[in-house]
Computed example of a mutant assay.
Amino acid sequence: MIWRHIVSNFLTLAIVIMVVLGGLVTWAKTQYEEPGPLTEGICLRVESGAKFRDISETLAAQGAVSSAYILRAGADYSDKDGKLKIGSYLIEPHSSMAGIVDQITAGGPSTCGTELNFRIGVNGQQMILRTLDPATGRYVETAKFDPKAEDVPEGFSEEAQKADTRLRVTLAEGVTSWQVVEALKAADFLSGDVAEVPAEGTLSPDSYEVTRGANRADLLAQMKARQETALALAWETRSEGLPYASPEEALVMASIVEKETGVASERAQVASVFVNRLERGMKLQTDPTVIYGVTKGQGALGRGLRQSELRRETPYNTYVIDGLPPTPICNPGTAAIDAALHPADTPYIYFVADGTGGHAFAQTLDEHNANVARWRAIEAQQE
C-alpha cells in the first residue's frame, strides 16, 4: 500500500510539473510572438562577430523585449541563433521577438543608420550623408558637399565606408546622359567601365539603391529599363490626336517640357503650348533646344544665348527648324513624360517667365508682348 501511495503521489507530482512546464512553454511562446513593449522605434546595429546573447541583452536594455532569455530561446528553437546578419535595423514600436529575430537574421539592405546619397544634378553633384532618426522615421542630414569643389568634411569618409551604410544614387530631372556617366565615373563606391554614353532621354531620373562595388553599366541598364517602362505606360494611355509619330517623339517633347519649367502644376500647360504650335505648323522657338545644340549636353552653358547662336541653323535650333529636334535634350522625369502625352487642353501658343518661378501664358501675340514687357520690367528691377 505504501509503495502504491508513493507511486500515486509521484505520478500526480509529475503531472503537475508537466502541466506547469506546459503552461510556461505556452506563456513563453506567447511572449515571443505577441507585440513587444517598445513604444518608440530604435536603431539596432549588428556588428561583425556579434553574438545573440549580446544582441538580446541590448534589446532588453533598450526596452524592445521583455526577456533576453526568451528571445535567445526562441531564436535557438527556430534554428536562427547562429544566423545573425551584419547591418543596422530599424526596430519598429511593438515589434514582437519573433519579428525581431526574423529581421536580424534575414539580412538584406540596412533599414536604419546611415545612408550615403550621391545626387547627380543639372548643375553638379552632391554627396549627402543622412542618418535615420528611429523615433520619427525621418532621415536627418549630417553632411553635404560637392565632391568636385569642396573638401571632404571631417568624419565623412569613416561614416561612408561603414559596411552597413546604405548607398543610393539619385538622378535629378533634366540631367543629360553625359552628365550621368561622368558623375558615375567619379563615384568610387561603384565599379566597371562605361563603354558609351546612353542615348539622350533614355535614363529615368529616380533614386536607385546600390551595393558597394555595383557595376556602373548594370546601373545604367536599370535606369534605361525604368525609363522604357515609364514611357510605354504613358504612351498606352496617351491623349488622342497628339502630333507624335512614335513614343520616341513624345520623349523629345517631354525633355523640352522638363527644361522649360520646374513648376509641376504647369507642365501640362507648357506641353499644350508646344502641341498647339506643332499642330499649327509654327516653330517651337524654345531656348533649351538651342542651348543643347551648343553644349551637346556636356554641362551647363553658363551664360545667355548669343544672337548668332539663335540664328545659326543646327538640328536643335527650333527658331530655325520646323518641328521637333532629332533627339531629347535631357532625361525627363515621369511627370514631364505624362504631361507630353496628356497635355492640357488650352488655346495658348505663347508663354514667358512671370517672375514667380512660373510662366504667364497667352493666346495672342499682343497678350504675349504685354507679358514679355512685364517680365522685362521685373528683370530690370532685379538687376
Rank of each mutant, 00 (worst) to 15 (best):
3 W>F: 08
4 R>L: 07
10 F>L: 15
11 L>S: 08
11 L>V: 02
12 T>K: 13
16 V>I: 12
19 V>Q: 01
22 G>D: 00
26 T>S: 15
28 A>L: 04
29 K>I: 05
33 E>C: 08
38 L>I: 08
41 G>R: 02
50 A>S: 12
54 D>S: 12
55 I>S: 03
56 S>Q: 04
58 T>C: 04
60 A>F: 11
64 A>M: 14
69 Y>M: 14
71 L>K: 06
85 K>L: 08
92 E>A: 14
92 E>P: 10
99 G>P: 08
100 I>M: 09
104 I>Q: 12
106 A>N: 08
111 T>C: 15
111 T>V: 09
112 C>M: 06
113 G>A: 08
116 L>H: 09
117 N>K: 09
119 R>P: 00
119 R>E: 09
120 I>S: 04
120 I>G: 07
122 V>I: 14
122 V>G: 06
123 N>F: 07
129 L>C: 08
130 R>W: 07
133 D>C: 03
133 D>A: 03
139 Y>A: 13
140 V>Y: 01
145 F>Y: 15
146 D>M: 06
148 K>N: 10
148 K>L: 09
153 P>E: 02
153 P>R: 02
155 G>Q: 02
158 E>F: 02
158 E>T: 14
160 A>W: 00
162 K>M: 10
166 R>V: 07
166 R>I: 07
170 T>F: 04
170 T>W: 05
175 V>I: 12
177 S>P: 11
180 V>M: 10
183 A>C: 10
185 K>Y: 13
186 A>M: 12
188 D>E: 13
195 A>L: 13
197 V>C: 10
200 E>V: 08
208 Y>W: 09
209 E>D: 15
211 T>M: 13
212 R>P: 14
213 G>P: 01
214 A>C: 06
222 Q>A: 14
225 A>V: 05
227 Q>M: 10
227 Q>C: 09
229 T>P: 07
238 R>G: 03
238 R>N: 01
240 E>A: 15
241 G>K: 02
244 Y>P: 04
251 L>N: 12
260 E>V: 02
260 E>H: 00
263 V>Y: 08
263 V>E: 14
264 A>Q: 14
264 A>H: 04
264 A>E: 13
266 E>G: 07
268 A>S: 15
270 V>H: 02
271 A>T: 00
271 A>H: 00
274 F>I: 00
280 R>N: 05
286 T>K: 03
289 T>L: 11
292 Y>S: 11
295 T>F: 11
298 Q>A: 15
303 R>G: 11
306 R>K: 15
306 R>E: 12
307 Q>A: 15
308 S>Y: 06
311 R>Y: 05
317 N>K: 05
320 V>Y: 11
331 N>W: 00
334 T>L: 13
336 A>L: 05
337 I>M: 09
338 D>T: 06
340 A>E: 00
341 L>V: 07
342 H>C: 05
345 D>R: 12
345 D>W: 09
346 T>M: 12
347 P>L: 11
349 I>S: 10
349 I>P: 12
350 Y>M: 02
351 F>P: 03
354 D>N: 13
355 G>W: 00
360 A>N: 10
360 A>Q: 15
361 F>W: 12
363 Q>G: 14
363 Q>Y: 02
366 D>G: 14
369 N>Y: 06
370 A>H: 06
372 V>R: 03
373 A>V: 03
374 R>D: 12
377 A>P: 08
380 A>Y: 07
383 E>A: 13
